[in-house]
Nucleic acid binder design. Structure first.
Length: 940
RNA sequence: GCCCUGGUGGUGGAACUGGUAGACACGCAGGACUUAAAAUCCUGUGGCCAGCAAUGGCCGUGCGGGUUCAAGUCCCGCCCGGGGCACCA
């Protein structure tokens, strides 16, 4: 049946069949013409902001996994619109980034051009599915009209500092005033705490000296630091872009390197980023990931005295979360890079220490992570425990990291597993401060044990001991309570071309912001994308750029994505990144949908930018997203064929025994899932595949069929398990495709794609169609009054759809539609009164067919402007109800009770007694349990 | 190792606060229409047992205990899968 499958009508008036393609094209066209999805910033309606994580427009196009989140957000946005909200639902492109530049290097195509092409393809694919995006608000991060404001916001960050007393970012000018009157005594330097000066000293500093100090305070600052350098990509990467010691993109090696870089002082916001998590609706897993990344720990910094070979004493500060175990310190460990190492090492140990440092330096980050060997060396020096003056040997070892805490630890082997292993390995005697809780074999890291062998702490449980020790240390002036964060400042520059240029000019080593009127500072055209000298970007090769002393780095991918949700609100404003009145109206994103992969990247950075803009008074809210939903990944369901090694013969899966056929080895090959029906291979299609590469293949079949093997893997072109939404939309229509994606399971859950079930959803839409049109007469709906039974079906569905949509349970909502249509079908209900409301209900899920049906019933305009049907209890209320009755916990029977009798205890007892007479051999009722709406339970 | 998730028919998955487990769909089986196939429609479909039958009984939500009249759901102890973090002192 050609028509059924192609969705083509022979004539326009042929309404008997559901010609989805024609219907979908018609309505997509009409929505476009009427600007049906344009959203106004001026409305009396309550607002609702539904946002998708905007895509990076890669060259590969969409597969069926990509639209999952977009469909969910589209349903929700349409639902809210029907419920009377003014809904902002925009879309755009995260268009700057490494892949476009890599592509440019390899193919010589300018990133702007390949990006443009990719965007056009994305847009075509998205339009196919019928989303309600307001495209008049589209943003592209690579558009100068957009990145003008990314640069502008950068300048605000550059022009401000974090005032810890006020706990917010304020203008850098306020700092000039403070320094001029009191020095920095009340505002210690976050970039370098050792910088201390008076007001007089400040006034006598040169401009360069003053600017260098200010740089240590700025939120966006330039400094030298150890960065993750990726040689293959020719750029530095942020911590979240490095995975297992290699780059997230491409998997190239990453090394530590000291370079001049731009940073964002996100560490100043650590506490607020943590606190804000309590005010937003993110999944527990997401909150967990973010707070792990921030890595807050509470402990103490303690000062030990070290005797140098010269005979003088030097302080050594350590950070510990367990000051309560201080009497169990058996050795100290410094990071190999620690500044005291060379100073305290004795002459006798110098060779060994230097050899060890050389060894550590020879090991890459990757090796260190891969094999966690116990290694270290004794320096020959001793430190004194400040509480009992015990001499403690000082070691260096690579397991202590220079970048965390003070780069030095006090090791308590009885209470810490790593310390214990280290002590064992080097035969360092272990002091037991845990009494019986320590068995001499392995450390006991428990935090609630009474201490022994611990001087004045003996007998105290650890939590109390913690307080007592900190108090004592502070009293003696040898330590204090200290909070530490694992999170580092975020590297904010890339030595690449395809990103936002920094609006910064260098002169005599001083960074000057460009004037606002010079924005946007446009990216110049280049001929070569090769990196410049000494770790600088391609911009360093352009003389017109370097002549103006402009910064040659560009901003990282997350710059543009850190504030795009604000630009959507006011996308064409050329006076401001977003008018304050407008951002006050739209406020937070009410619902944000996207994958978990941005947990510690984009989501953290955009929260940071929002807080900065809030502090500086540009917006009125400090958390960008009210509710975040993470859609699951759609995995690929790969199919395999098995070729007898060295031949052209393929063996059906069921004939294989222990990976062999007839004793011969087999090669398993990925085969395109698009020509496998379930597990059965379409042999003709396979023969034609890849220009006939397998044209001569021979097959050993079972039951006349070739069965493939199957495996769930990531969806990717190379595994031939990608399914293109375009194909499914062509074959079944966008509405079927949308509903099927939702029907597959909960949005948050990851699941493998399986095309098979799509027919069930398609059948449902056709069945729906037949409620309106019939094969003989065309339109078959009528105006007669709906019966009680019909209204009951309708209102039950209204309630279910409303509840399920609200709580994001789209799969059960789709099921509810199926039940409804099945029941109306059984009731032979073709009544306009019922069908019209059903069409409105269905709008969020299947917008094209509902528009068509709603109009077919004679309505004018668009169903988009209809109101969501109002559920009325009276239609679903039961006058009598059958109740299950259990006797002594066993289900025995059911009894029918009139609804008004439900409240009458007496009547129930009478009824119950009848039941008991029947089901038991007499005996009274001991207990009567009645849960309204549920079950009657009798104990006799 | 730590943290977060999840474990239900042949399959994807339902079951909101404890209340007749398996909605809905796929698949499968049977039937109707058809020369035939496709499509469509109807019926059945957790397992075991008894019965010609309507039906009835028993067992069933990863495993072992517990609370409760009643447990997929709550509590305790394990096993397995998925994701995140991982020398962070």
């Amino acid at each position: 049946d050609y028509h059924r499958w192609s969705g083509q009508a022979t004539t326009i008036t042929d309404q008997m069949e559901y010609h989805f393609r024609e219907i979908e094209r018609k309505w997509q066209q009409r929505w476009k013409e009427t600007g049906a999805y344009k959203v106004s910033n001026n409305s009396d309606k309550p607002k609702f902001y539904v946002l998708d994580m905007f895509p990076y427009p890669s060259g590969a196009g969409l597969h069926v996994g990509h639209p999952l989140g977009y469909i969910a957000s589209d349903i929700f946005a349409r639902f809210k619109r029907l419920k009377g909200f003014n809904v902002l639902h925009p879309m755009g492109y995260d268009a700057f980034g490494l892949p476009a530049e890599q592509y440019a290097i390899e193919h010589g195509v300018h990133p702007a051009i390949s990006t443009e092409q990719n965007i056009a393809n994305f847009r075509r694919q998205l339009d196919n599915i019928g989303f309600c995006f307001d495209w008049s608000r589209e943003v592209r991060t690579s558009d100068p009209g957009y990145y003008k404001w990314t640069q502008w916001i950068f300048l605000q960050l550059f022009g401000s500092w974090y005032n810890r007393k006020l706990n917010k970012a304020v203008k850098i000018e306020s700092l000039l005033q403070i320094f001029g009157t009191e020095g920095n005594i009340n505002h210690s330097c976050p970039g370098d705490p050792s910088i201390v000066f008076s007001a007089g000293e400040w006034r006598n500093f040169s401009e360069k000296e003053q600017q260098d100090i200010l740089m240590h305070y700025r939120i966006a600052y330039c400094g030298y630091g150890e960065v993750n350098w990726c040689e293959a990509l020719g750029t530095v990467l942020a911590n979240d872009e490095v995975v297992n010691g290699v780059s997230e993109r491409g998997g190239y090696p990453v090394v530590k390197k000291k370079l001049r870089q731009w940073y964002l002082r996100i560490t100043e916001y650590a506490d607020r980023l943590l606190e804000g998590l309590q005010r937003v609706e993110f999944s527990e897993a997401m909150k967990e990931m973010q707070s792990n990344w921030i890595g807050k720990s509470t402990g103490a910094e303690i000062e030990f005295q070290v005797k140098t070979p010269g005979g003088t004493f030097r302080p050594l500060r350590v950070y510990t979360t367990r000051p309560d175990t201080i009497f169990g310190v058996d050795f100290m460990v410094l990071a190999p890079e620690h500044e005291l190492v060379s100073e305290v090492t004795t002459a006798a140990r110098r060779d060994a220490v230097e050899a060890y440092i050389a060894y550590v330096n020879s090991r890459s980050e990757r090796e260190r992570m891969a094999e966690k060997k116990i290694s270290g060396v004794f320096t020959g020096a001793y430190a004194l425990n400040p509480l009992n003056n015990r001499e403690i040997p000082i070691w260096i070892a690579e397991y202590v990291l220079a970048g965390y805490g003070t780069g030095a630890i006090m090791a308590v082997p009885s209470g810490d597993e790593r310390d214990h292993r280290f002590a064992r390995h080097f035969n360092i005697p272990v002091t037991n401060i845990l009494g019986e809780a320590y068995n001499g074999e392995e450390a006991n890291p428990s935090k609630d044990i009474p201490l022994s062998n611990s001087g004045f702490l003996d007998g105290l449980r650890m939590p109390e001991a913690f307080e007592a020790v900190v108090h004592k240390l502070e009293e003696l002036g040898v330590g204090e309570r200290k909070v530490n964060y694992r999170m580092r400042d975020a590297a904010f520059s890339r030595q690449r071309y395809w990103g936002e240029p920094f609006p910064i000019r260098w002169e005599n080593g001083i960074a000057y912001p460009l004037d606002e009127s010079a924005l946007p500072l446009e990216l110049p055209k280049v001929d070569s994308y090769q990196p410049g000298p000494e770790g600088e970007g391609p911009l360093a090769n352009i003389s017109s750029w370097t002549e103006r002393n402009l910064e040659t780095n560009t901003m990282p991918g997350y710059a543009g994505s850190s504030w795009y949700f604000l630009r959507y609100m006011d996308p064409h404003n050329d006076q401001a990144f977003c008018d304050r009145k407008v951002s006050d109206y739209w406020n937070q994103v009410d619902l944000y949908i996207g994958g978990t992969e941005h947990a510690v990247g984009h989501l953290l950075y955009s929260r940071l930018w929002t807080k900065c803009l809030y502090d500086l008074g540009f917006i009125g809210h400090d958390e960008p997203y009210k509710r975040l939903v993470n859609q699951g990944m759609i995995q690929g369901s790969s199919r395999f064929v098995y070729r007898v090694n060295g031949t052209n013969t393929f063996v059906s899966k069921g004939l294989i025994v222990e990976d062999k056929f007839d004793g011969k080895k087999l090669d398993s090959l990925h085969v395109d899932v698009n020509f496998v029906d379930g597990l059965v291979l379409d042999i003709d299609a396979f023969r034609k595949w890849r220009n006939g590469e397998y044209a001569d293949a021979e097959f050993i079949l079972e039951d006349g069929r070739y069965y493939c093997g199957a495996e769930v893997e990531k969806m990717s072109k190379s595994k031939f398990n990608t399914v293109n939404p375009d194909d499914l939309v062509n074959k079944y229509g966008a509405d079927t495709f949308r509903m099927y994606e939702m029907f597959l399971g909960p949005v948050e859950q990851s699941k493998p794609w399986d095309t098979k079930g799509i027919e069930g959803v398609h059948r449902f839409l056709r069945k729906l169609w037949r409620l309106f049109f019939d094969e003989q007469n065309g339109a078959c709906w009528n105006d007669s009054k709906a019966t009680a039974a019909e209204l009951k079906v309708l209102h039950r569905t209204i309630r279910k759809i409303e509840e399920d949509t609200e709580r994001f349970s789209f799969n059960t909502a789709v099921a509810a539609f199926m039940v409804c249509v099945n029941e109306l079908h059984d009731l032979k209900c073709h009544k306009k009164e019922v069908l019209e409301q059903l069409a409105v209900l269905l709008t969020p899920y299947a917008p094209h067919i509902s528009e068509e049906l709603w109009n077919a019933l004679g309505n004018q305009g668009s169903v988009l402007d209809a109101r969501f049907p109002v559920f009325e209890e009276k239609y679903v209320a039961e006058s009598v109800k059958e109740y299950p009755v259990s006797v002594n916990g066993k289900l025995r029977t059911t009894i029918t009770i009139a609804l008004d009798a439900q409240q009458a205890e007496v009547e129930k007892l009478v009824l119950a007694n009848e039941v008991v007479q029947k089901w038991t051999s007499g005996g009274g009722i001991k207990k009567f349990i009645f849960v309204p709406g549920k079950m009657i339970n009798l104990v006799v």
